[in-house]
């Protein structure tokens, strides 16, 4: 073990899916900041999808990668088509160039059949017990980062100071082994620069004490950011004490550091139209397929604490999730960016 290991820390996020309304503000905030340059047109490092659904990229859960019994699993590198997006529209043709036949505003050229949020709000279930929930996804800052493990060039690394997985874009030669190995498929290929790219963990912001764009701009107040080992911080409490925050697809074995509070759902109706008070519209097996077997206890804990709140009892968990002060979501990154003076 290297000497610096003792000094290593891990930044983690907890995303409370019961607060996520699928508004895409995180996605737009991220894209507006980082993905404006050449070759990033179709890149959305942070995406939000409706679940159950095919996700981004399309059917990402069937694309392999990650580990099985600690052995890397062969995966597929998602393509631009799998992600969709990067659309250019015919604004000028519709508005200014003369359009007496009233052609509508459309993607120029071939019409898309998929996009970053194509199956939004379609969900699953049988009416009236239909259901869906929203899931934002970004780089998972994995403890056992399959992408780092995959890069033959050592172009990727996990930082000791915060565990963010970074890429040396100058070293990257676009082999896309990282994208094959990443089981979450959150690595994009820049077809202009011919390198892979992914969420940079908003390192320039973190280094200034400012919360990541996706977290700071989230109007639903659902993104907690902090150091996993900070026992006073919300992350540690939610992940390790209350155990209500779970990694997505733990079976991928990369030990992700983005955790999710699993979704509650409306009570379903019985065949006769009466309400099944004890039930949930989201099948437990679906939740388990996403968050692993720990999800059942997590849901039980959430329900117990919600009940407590309804009966007027105090609940430390509920208070934590309410996050009365916005900045409690990211206690170590509360700096207002406007307080920074650039040289």
């Amino acid at each position: 073990m290297s000497a610096s290991t003792t000094g290593t820390r891990q930044i983690a996020m907890v995303l409370d899916l019961n607060k996520c309304i699928g508004c895409q503000t995180c996605a737009v905030a991220c894209k507006s900041l980082w993905c404006k340059d050449e070759g990033t047109d179709y890149q959305w490092w942070c995406t939000v999808n409706t679940m159950p659904g095919r996700g981004t990229p399309k059917d990402y859960e069937e694309m392999g990668g990650g580990y099985k019994d600690s052995i890397p699993v062969r995966g597929i590198a998602p393509s631009r088509e799998d992600f969709g997006g990067g659309w250019k529209f015919n604004h000028s043709e519709v508005f200014f160039d003369g359009n007496p036949e009233h052609k509508p505003l459309r993607v120029a050229g071939e019409q898309p059949q998929w996009g970053p949020n194509w199956d939004e709000d379609q969900g699953a279930g049988e009416y009236p017990n239909s259901y869906f929930y929203y899931m934002p996804r970004l780089c998972n800052f994995c403890t056992h980062a399959a992408c780092v493990d995959a890069c033959p060039r050592g172009a990727m690394a996990k930082r000791s100071s915060d565990g963010i997985v970074v890429r040396d874009e100058d070293r990257c030669r676009g082999y896309q082994f990282c994208a094959e190995a990443c089981p979450y498929k959150k690595i994009y290929f820049n077809y202009e620069l011919k390198i892979s790219q992914h969420c940079i963990g908003c390192i320039p912001r973190l280094e200034q004490g400012v919360a990541p764009a996706c977290a700071r701009q989230c109007p639903g107040r659902l993104v907690f950011v902090g150091y996993l080992d900070d026992e006073d911080g919300p992350i540690h409490k939610l992940v390790n004490e209350w155990k209500v925050a779970l990694p997505l697809h733990p079976e991928y074995e990369t030990l992700p550091n983005v955790y999710y509070i699993p979704p509650l759902a409306p009570a379903p109706f019985n065949e006769d139209g009466s309400v099944n008070e004890a039930g949930s519209r989201i099948p437990p097996e679906h939740l388990e397929s996403q968050f692993g077997p720990g999800v059942h206890d997590a849901i039980d804990t959430l329900k117990t604490e919600v009940e407590k709140a309804r009966s007027g009892e105090a609940s430390g968990l509920m208070d934590l999730l309410i996050a009365y002060n916005w900045q409690d979501l990211f206690p170590d990154f509360t700096r207002d960016p406007i307080d920074i003076t650039w040289d």
Binding site: S2, S4, H144, S160, V165, I203, P204
Partner: peptide
């Protein structure tokens, strides 16, 4: 397994 974190590269 953990990914080694011996360095602290930036972006």
């Amino acid at each position: 397994t953990k990914t080694e974190t011996t360095s602290n590269p930036g972006v």
